[in-house]
Nucleic acid binder design. Structure first.
Lengths: 229, 229
DNA sequence: CCCGACAATAGATCCGACGTCTCGATATCA
DNA sequence: TGATATCGAGACGTCGGATCTATTGTCGGG
């Protein structure tokens, strides 16, 4: 195995073993390089790899630190790779969304508070069905995000955020040209919020499933079988 | 922004824009470095980062290629970061598993064939409740994997594989010392398989939920509130 | 006590060199 | 002719050193 990959594992091990805790600082590149037995150049490759995965936080002129390692950070890296997925994968991603989002809505209904409901309400009210695509995407992302956030499961929230984040939604919306798609979406959002306010998990889940599946159906139609490589 | 991060984005863009397709070869490091306006060392940091995320495949002595970019590969990177999660995150991860796995079992029940059922059966029969922890973990992983694979959603399958892969399960099992935990697990696996054979999605989902939740409950008890930082 | 200059520290980037692996072209033998 | 052995160009792997720049803490002046 290459010395760089070796270093990646060693550093990871230093973290999992507890030798390096969240927020802790690593030795300087020169020193760490010597300790792990590789040049500074090669070590930097390892550090960069761990940095893009949000495991290390490199501060120029200061030092290199272990991040907080919270799900929020670690799952952020997932966003990056999801952007690389092809159109066909979008269908499968929606298959996962239709599982996760209704479940999240169900959980959210159980944890709903007036403040959260009001903020979701505001989110809806501020949206103009005649607005630009960017505005609609922004609202759509924020609304769904607000719900998964309210599920009480940070991990779930960040996972949904990653696999159905801005870029993915933007791609979808750009494809949707149907008249009234915006209005329909907003209406469905309202309906979901109503269920959440009532603390009705089953209804919330059902309406979310309906909502997500609506887009999914459009997507399946828009994705010709040829794309299934 | 650092030239290395710039390069990462540029290369990613070359892929998303279609300029570089899956399996295609990148220019040599020297040449690509010149084109992107950075040294070979810095470029290599960018390439290494994309390599660990399974976006690029570097073959020594040959060249650097774009991977197939299939979900199978891209979600593999998720395994790496999941290993870094703390014990407290495990509880939340289980919260996601109890959503995904029953749903996957439900889908699997709809797609079940005799061959798949037989292979799952074999998987169970070969397991010895008195065997070593490693054996049990190996069986457990394989059984659950077999089910999500049968869901027909590759993305879902790889996602579950990543967030509840070998390392996570090993950590759990090492913690389980209860008498009969192994036998109970195997019995539950049998019951799930029966539901799958019957093509009963609801029963399959229910039994899977029961199964996963059993471990989840143990985990919640074993995780003291202090861990909730 | 506050603030700016200075020096030490640490990462950012580059250059050039050498090792080693792959693959394909060429040469060789049956 | 065809299979095999050999070799060299090309490409990644690794290293050491040199220079630049950002950060931080210190120290003296106001």
């Amino acid at each position: 195995m290459a010395v760089t990959d070796e270093a990646i594992l060693r550093i990871k091990e230093m973290i999992t073993s507890g030798e390096l805790g969240p927020g802790e600082r690593l030795p300087p590149e020169k020193e760490l390089g010597e300790r792990l037995g590789l040049s500074r150049n090669s070590l930097r490759e390892a550090v960069k790899a761990l940095e893009v995965m949000r495991v290390l936080d490199v501060r120029r002129g200061d030092g290199t630190y272990v991040t907080s390692l919270e799900p929020r950070l670690l799952l952020e890296a997932l966003t990056f790779v999801v952007d690389l997925h092809t159109d066909h994968s979008l269908v499968e991603i929606f298959g996962v969304r239709r599982i996760l989002e209704p479940a999240a809505a169900s959980l959210a209904a159980l944890h709903m508070t007036d403040e959260i409901a009001d903020s979701l309400q505001l989110q809806i009210d501020e949206t103009d069905a005649e607005g630009s695509i960017e505005e609609l995407v922004s609202h759509d992302v924020a609304f769904h995000q607000g719900i998964v956030d309210a599920s009480g499961n940070e991990y779930l929230a960040r996972l949904v955020e990653s696999i159905s984040g801005g870029t993915v939604r933007a791609r979808i919306w750009r494809g949707i040209t149907q008249q009234g798609a915006a209005k329909r979406t907003i209406d469905e959002h309202r309906a979901i919020l109503t269920a959440l306010r009532r603390g009705d998990p089953e209804l919330a889940a059902a309406r979310m499933l309906t909502h997500v599946s609506g887009v999914e159906e459009w997507l399946r139609e828009a994705t010709p079988p040829e794309d299934v490589a």
